[in-house]
Simulated scan of single mutants.
Amino acid sequence: MRATRRPGAYNCGLDAALDVIGGKWKVVVVWALAERPRRFGELRRAVGGVTEKVLAAHLRELEEDGIVRREDFGEVPPRVEYSLTPVGRSLNAALAPLGVWGDEHVRGVAPH
């Protein structure tokens, strides 16, 4: 979780979870990484519509929160891959029922 919030500062577990996945693209990034580790450009194409700046910021935050692992292979040209940590995989599993709910109710939910 972000350094600005202490574990005792959350009202409930859902508050803590939303702090981690808050933002337009974080859940989609976690979902895309569930399939396999991805390089930055591949992840950006998989997410679609996210800017490089926002994706980089979200990946940094997800890494700080222990959801995403960044592996730098130390090669030239640079090669970096992102993957889910065990905590990230458990978050993805927790999001799966929400995805099912969205699939079942997508027609009844008005976009904002």
Rank of each mutant, 00 (worst) to 15 (best):
87 V>D: 14
48 G>S: 12
61 E>D: 14
95 L>Q: 00
44 R>D: 08
28 V>M: 05
101 W>G: 07
64 E>K: 08
85 T>Y: 03
80 V>R: 01
99 G>Q: 08
11 N>P: 05
37 P>E: 11
88 G>F: 03
5 R>T: 15
35 E>Y: 06
93 A>Y: 04
80 V>E: 08
43 L>V: 04
46 A>P: 07
70 R>L: 06
54 V>L: 15
95 L>G: 00
17 A>L: 15
33 L>N: 00
89 R>D: 07
72 D>V: 04
4 T>S: 05
91 L>W: 04
19 D>K: 09
86 P>T: 02
51 T>P: 04
17 A>C: 14
108 G>M: 07
15 D>Q: 08
35 E>K: 14
71 E>K: 15
30 V>C: 05
50 V>G: 00
7 P>V: 08
65 D>T: 06
59 L>Q: 00
89 R>L: 13
95 L>C: 01
14 L>D: 10
71 E>G: 05
85 T>G: 02
48 G>M: 08
8 G>I: 09
74 G>K: 09
56 A>N: 07
38 R>L: 15
36 R>E: 09
99 G>K: 08
48 G>T: 05
47 V>M: 04
61 E>P: 01
14 L>S: 09
28 V>G: 00
45 R>L: 14
100 V>M: 11
82 Y>Q: 04
99 G>W: 13
68 V>R: 00
38 R>D: 07
78 P>M: 12
85 T>K: 01
70 R>C: 10
22 G>R: 14
88 G>K: 01
79 R>D: 10
43 L>G: 07
55 L>D: 02
58 H>I: 02
38 R>P: 03
24 K>T: 14
39 R>W: 09
18 L>P: 04
110 A>K: 13
87 V>Q: 11
83 S>G: 13
109 V>C: 05
67 I>V: 15
34 A>R: 08
95 L>N: 01
81 E>A: 11
72 D>M: 02
110 A>Y: 04
39 R>T: 10
65 D>R: 12
105 H>N: 15
12 C>K: 06
58 H>T: 05
52 E>Y: 05
5 R>P: 03
37 P>N: 14
42 E>F: 04
57 A>D: 14
55 L>A: 08
25 W>L: 07
66 G>M: 01
40 F>A: 09
77 P>C: 10
6 R>D: 05
39 R>L: 12
49 G>V: 11
33 L>E: 01
91 L>T: 04
15 D>A: 15
21 I>E: 00
86 P>F: 02
21 I>P: 03
106 V>P: 03
66 G>A: 02
51 T>N: 08
56 A>Q: 15
102 G>L: 09
64 E>P: 02
23 G>V: 12
34 A>V: 03
21 I>S: 01
98 L>A: 13
45 R>Y: 06
74 G>T: 01
23 G>Q: 00
98 L>V: 15
57 A>H: 13
87 V>F: 05
10 Y>I: 14
93 A>H: 12
11 N>M: 11
48 G>Y: 04
8 G>K: 10
68 V>L: 00
94 A>H: 10
106 V>H: 02
101 W>Y: 07
64 E>M: 11
15 D>W: 07
9 A>E: 11
83 S>M: 12
27 V>D: 09
21 I>N: 00
69 R>Q: 11
51 T>R: 12
8 G>H: 11
77 P>H: 06
45 R>H: 10
64 E>Q: 11
64 E>W: 08
53 K>S: 12
67 I>Q: 00
84 L>E: 02
100 V>W: 07
101 W>T: 09
38 R>A: 14
103 D>P: 07
46 A>W: 09
44 R>F: 08
